[in-house]
Computed example of a mutant assay.
Amino acid sequence: MTPHPALEQADVLIELKRYDEAAALLGRRLAEEPDDVRAWVRLGRCQVVAGQVEQALTSLGEALQRAPEDLGALCMYAQALRRADHLEQPERWRKAEEALRQALRVDPQNSFAHALLAEFLMYYPTRRLEALDLAKEAVRLDPESVDAYQALWRTAGAAGETETYKWALRQVLRLDPTNNQALYLVSMQEAHKPGTTAAQAAEVYADALAAAPDNTGLRHDLDRATYRLLRGIRWLALICVAAAGVMVDLFPQDGEAARELPVPLGNRLWVLVVMAAIWGFGAWRRYRRLRTGVQLNVRSLVRRGSWARVVLAQAAWAMLCALLISQLPWTERTVPRILFWAGLVPTLATIWFDGKKKP
């Protein structure tokens, strides 16, 4: 049977997440036809999304009073009941389970009802294996259902079935490449694999953000990975400070003659070439090989993040000390030694505790 035009318009508004407008339209429809079960169910859905649980239960109760075995009404009624805390209102959770059991009696082959009941039961530690079995049945009944695979990944995670959890997540992304939660969880798995570098982790998060640009969790993790990248450049600056100190022979060994000062110009220029190579291969080349999204986030993070700017300032300060040590024709070692420790100590002291700072 063709739905009433008002219901079709309401479906469009719900799809656009304009729930208030949809609820108003459905209210007008119900004023005309109070026995329209489909309108009551849609109204209940709008109220559930808006957090109006009591109103939703009333609307869905009206639907079930008129059609006690309506599958959509039973499933939405259970979802509204689940909004209650199961410790504070256990009676509502029992009613939710009863509604879902009734939905399965009405249609034992309904994948969505299996998935809903699976996600409901996984909150009970002693029933997680039952929930996992229900989710697997939901997938069997409808192998192309995103809801079924979402129920499977959640119940598998709750039951400790790691391989099933990972497989179900991949299946969700196969069917819905922009699924926010699945993208976030899969990206977390990829980025936290043993041996994954900061650059690789940043690229994983950047790829996921390209598919789900509004995902705040992915954006936060991209910032963290980018910050790890920036933290690494301080080691390059410290290597340059060490190279400058070796060239000037700041700390000659006991019994060995110290190198004559000033250091010849050729040696000073040579250490400058070495420093340029360190930065060229360790930073510039690495930066240029990053994907555009990560490069843009590096610049953005430097503008937004106070600790990101601290990291760059420390690297710049250490490099300034390295250049002063290596390029000026010192005739004695006192000032170069002061510059050496000034470039080395503040940076090293910060490296050990700023890893968990917000970028």
Rank of each mutant, 00 (worst) to 15 (best):
194 P>I: 02
73 A>G: 15
264 P>K: 07
29 R>G: 02
77 Y>S: 05
238 L>K: 09
140 R>E: 12
209 L>C: 03
69 E>P: 01
77 Y>K: 03
100 L>C: 06
163 E>H: 09
234 R>Y: 01
237 A>S: 15
314 Q>M: 14
225 A>I: 00
269 L>W: 06
294 V>E: 00
248 V>W: 08
9 Q>N: 09
218 L>S: 12
50 A>N: 01
296 L>V: 13
249 D>C: 07
68 P>H: 12
170 R>T: 04
130 E>I: 04
272 L>N: 03
6 A>Y: 00
155 T>G: 02
4 H>G: 02
218 L>A: 08
123 Y>W: 14
25 L>S: 09
87 L>T: 13
358 K>Y: 04
15 E>D: 15
299 R>Q: 12
290 L>C: 06
282 G>F: 01
83 R>E: 06
331 T>R: 14
199 A>I: 07
233 I>W: 06
38 R>L: 07
151 A>V: 02
250 L>Y: 10
181 Q>S: 14
95 K>P: 09
127 R>N: 09
115 A>E: 04
54 E>N: 13
11 D>S: 12
247 M>N: 00
293 G>R: 13
123 Y>D: 15
158 A>K: 15
184 Y>S: 11
84 A>V: 12
128 R>V: 00
102 Q>L: 05
125 P>A: 01
33 E>P: 05
159 A>L: 09
295 Q>V: 05
65 Q>L: 11
38 R>P: 06
187 S>C: 03
65 Q>W: 11
169 L>V: 04
350 T>V: 13
284 W>A: 15
125 P>Y: 01
351 I>N: 11
223 D>V: 03
326 S>I: 00
347 T>K: 07
331 T>M: 10
182 A>T: 14
203 E>L: 11
339 L>M: 07
101 R>H: 08
129 L>F: 12
341 W>R: 06
95 K>S: 11
230 L>W: 05
194 P>F: 04
168 A>S: 05
256 E>Q: 15
228 R>E: 07
243 A>L: 14
114 H>R: 10
330 W>I: 03
341 W>D: 05
147 D>R: 12
89 Q>S: 13
163 E>S: 12
132 L>T: 02
204 V>A: 01
156 A>E: 05
104 L>A: 00
58 T>L: 01
113 A>L: 04
343 G>I: 02
145 S>I: 10
311 V>Y: 00
17 K>T: 10
110 N>D: 15
37 V>Q: 01
268 R>C: 06
9 Q>M: 10
221 D>I: 04
348 L>P: 02
138 A>N: 04
240 C>Q: 08
119 E>H: 07
70 D>V: 07
43 L>V: 06
41 V>A: 06
212 A>P: 03
328 L>M: 13
129 L>C: 02
97 E>N: 04
293 G>K: 12
154 R>C: 03
